[in-house]
């Protein structure tokens, strides 16, 4: 056996060219399975859908015509229903940004205190969030039923029978009725996210603000709201994304009606693609939805995450 070298030279392990190449490749080999899935099931379909949006194609036959941006110009200038759908999505998103998020924050503030029963309340309020929206839509359709629905029965029972009506068949009430259903099912998630945010705020900030002389409103304004910055990013981004891809509730509750008054971009895209066999136009609507979400959500997320 060789003794310890005293010459100051450290023996080096030599590697062959093949070994060195393998070492360089190693990280890519590790991410390869995920990349293959990502490219095959996400990037490729997206590119195909983008290509489809430039075609006049029924989605079934082998024949198609390249029409350039015609699907997009039709959407913008020649399709009244698309305008109604876009308008509904904008309204829906504004509603989603304000109503369930504010209610979620309010619930979180109430349930963040140490009181008996808070865990039960948190669970009850969050419970609708775990239901599939299709089920939620069906349940609420029954509740809105003009003949045997719980809402009309209740109105008659409390003596407000004159207010009872066909909620989902009314041109004026259909959209608000569906939105109420959405609020019922959507308060739980912001509540949980805000609760997590509230619990992460160091109690010393509140004590410090009290020593500084801040009252309850000032503490909310200067400690709670800034402390929930990360929660706001998630909650508001999800609201924007959810607002433009709403589909399930409209599909199950009104099917875009009465008339086309409750059409949204998601349902209109579905109808165009699978009912009217305008796959190219449907793909164009899908890209309009994606573009709006990207334009609205990404700058907001980047701005809020900078801090």
């Amino acid at each position: 056996m060789q003794g310890i070298q005293v010459s100051g030279q450290v023996p080096r392990r030599t590697r062959s060219k093949g070994q060195r190449r393998l070492t360089k490749l190693q990280p890519y080999l590790f991410i390869a399975p995920a990349m293959i899935f990502y490219l095959g099931f996400l990037v490729y379909p997206m590119l195909v859908s983008l290509w489809t949006s430039f075609l006049d194609w029924d989605g079934l036959s082998a024949n198609y015509t390249f029409v350039g941006l015609k699907n997009y110009t039709d959407f913008l200038f020649h399709d009244d229903v698309a305008q109604t759908a876009l308008y509904n999505n904008v309204l829906w998103t504004l509603g989603a940004l304000t109503i369930p998020t504010s209610l979620g924050l309010l619930m979180a503030l109430i349930l963040n205190r140490r009181m008996p029963g808070t865990l039960a309340f948190r669970t009850i309020i969050y419970a609708p969030a775990v239901l599939p929206l299709v089920s939620v839509g069906l349940i609420w359709s029954w509740m809105y039923n003009p003949n045997f629905g719980a809402i009309n029965l209740f109105l008659h029972w409390v003596g407000l029978g004159n207010l009872a009506g066909g909620w989902l068949s009314s041109f004026d009430m259909a959209m608000p009725s569906v939105f109420i259903t959405y609020v019922w099912g959507s308060v739980g998630l912001p509540m949980i996210l805000y609760l997590a945010g509230l619990q992460a705020i160091n109690g010393d900030y509140y004590d410090s603000a009290r020593v500084d002389g801040a009252n309850a409103v000032q503490r909310f304004r200067h400690v709670t709201l800034p402390g929930l910055r990360e929660s706001h990013v998630i909650v508001l981004s999800l609201a924007v994304i959810g607002g433009f891809k709403v589909f399930d509730l409209i599909y199950t509750m009104t099917y875009g009606g009465p008339g086309r008054v409750t059409q949204v971009l998601g349902t209109w895209m579905y109808f165009q693609t699978f009912q009217y066999y305008h796959a190219g136009y449907g793909a164009a609507i899908a890209w309009v939805i994606a573009s709006i979400i990207l334009v609205l959500a990404i700058p907001y997320i980047r701005h809020m995450s900078k801090e």
């Binding site: 160091n202 010393d204 900030y205 004590d207 410090s208 603000a209 020593v211 200067h222 400690v223 800034p226 402390g227 910055r229 801090e307």
Partner: peptide, 14 residues
């Protein structure tokens, strides 16, 4: 009219 210095400093992060 007291002022307090906290262990965590409690400086408002924003």
């Amino acid at each position: 009219n007291v002022a307090m210095v906290f262990q965590s400093y409690a400086l408002y992060p924003h």
